[in-house]
Structure formats: structure tokens, C-alpha cells
Amino acid sequence: MKNKNLYNYILGIADNSLILGQRLGSLTGHGPSLETDIACTNMSLDLFGQVRSYYQYAAKIAGDNRTEDDIAMLRKEREYVNVLLVEQPNTDFAYTMARQFLFDVYHLLFLQELQKSKDLTLSAIANKSIKEVSYHLRFSSDWIRRLGDGTAVSHQKMQDAMDGLWTYTDELFHQTEADKIMVAEGIGVDVTALKEAYYKKVNAVLEESTLQIPESKWFQKGGKQGVHTEHLGYLLAELQYMQRAYPNMEW
């Protein structure tokens, strides 16, 4: 492959949306209300829409016969490079919203920078996605506030979710080799530079929601290198089922 770094860089962006979209999609029909059900399905749809744009572009760069579906569904578990945060399970609605919020804040900051990329395709995808992700962030922030500052039960559940997921936030700002090269070429986003704005925004919403900012200084990492939590394998088993059980067919 001629442009292996760009290819890997795109996967690093798109895999996050793929895995989070898959997590949200499994909730369809089971939400706490019709409105939240529709909203979560909608976010899942947005994320998969983005995924398709990224993978179609990646497939073009690869230049062999691989398709967006090959990239999405036919890699092995160590080849997915999403951050650990997005693969965490839908433990309850507090976890689902906390995960969403902790990712959305990052996602929006990231896209705002990606929009300035020298790579016109990535810039265009970012430009389109910003509108969607701004809505995701509004939705998830509202739910952090409602649950954090709602009842004693919801407050505790949201606090537990934040405490549980906090350890996965730092990885968002780790640079991979592909990242570094792409930043140097003016294509990629320097994620290390987003960290300050990220925690500022996150902390502000948490405070407003009467939540404690988790104090843990210990963080988990590995997703960007393909070393995942045990949750990912099961998610992939479902995601890949049809492509594995019925190989080389069109659907």
C-alpha cells in the first residue's frame, strides 16, 4: 500500500465511530423512553454514516479490492484500533450517557481540528460530522445534567458511571506513530493539544451536574495498539457474524 500511514490514521478515527455506533445500535428498542430510544438510534446512524465515509476513503487508498465492509467486519481483534472507552458495555443508561459524553467532548474538539486538514476528503467528512456530533454532545450533556442533578438514585448511578469510565479518558490523547506522521504532514490532528480543552469542558459539565470530578490518576490504554478490553471480542463476534458465516457474498 502506497499510503499506509494515512490508511492507518483513518482507521484510528473511524474505528471509534464503528464501535460506539455498534454499542448504541444494540440498545434500539430497549431505551428508557421512546424519545431516548429514537435519539440513541439516531446517534448510532450518524456514527455509521461517518464510518462509511471514512472506510470508503480508506478502501480507495488501499487500492486493492477491499471494500468498506471488509474493513469494518473482516479484521481480527488485534487489528481494531478504537480507544477502550467506546467499547465499554451498556451497563445502564448512566454508563451509556457517560460514555457518550466523554467521547462526544473529544469527538467534537477533534473534528473541529480535522476540518482544517490538508486532506480534502478528511476535511469534508469532518465538516459534515461536526453538525451531527454537536447534537450528540448537546444530547449527552443534557443527560449528564439530568441524571447528575436529578434524584439521589440517578446521581449515584451517574457518579458511578463517571468513576468507572474516567480511567479510559486519557487514552484519547495518546499519539500513535501514524498520528505523528500525519500531524507532521498537516493532515492529522495533534490530539495532545486537545487535552486541556477537553478536561475543562468535561469538568464544567460535571460541576454543573453536581458530580464529583473523579480523582483517579491511573489510566488504561492499549486500544490504539489493538490491545483491547475483554468486551470487544463479543462485540466483534456479533458485528462480524454474517461476513464470517457466509463469506464472499453480496447482501
Partner: peptide, 15 residues
């Protein structure tokens, strides 16, 4: 939804 065979089908089913 989680087992749709392609991204296109998954998006259509979600919608």
C-alpha cells in the same frame, strides 16, 4: 441490527 451483513444494510435497518 448488531449482526447486519454490511454497513449499508445496518444503516438501513437502524433507520
Amino acid at each position: 441490527i448488531t449482526r447486519a451483513p454490511s454497513l449499508r444494510r445496518k444503516v438501513a435497518l437502524l433507520a
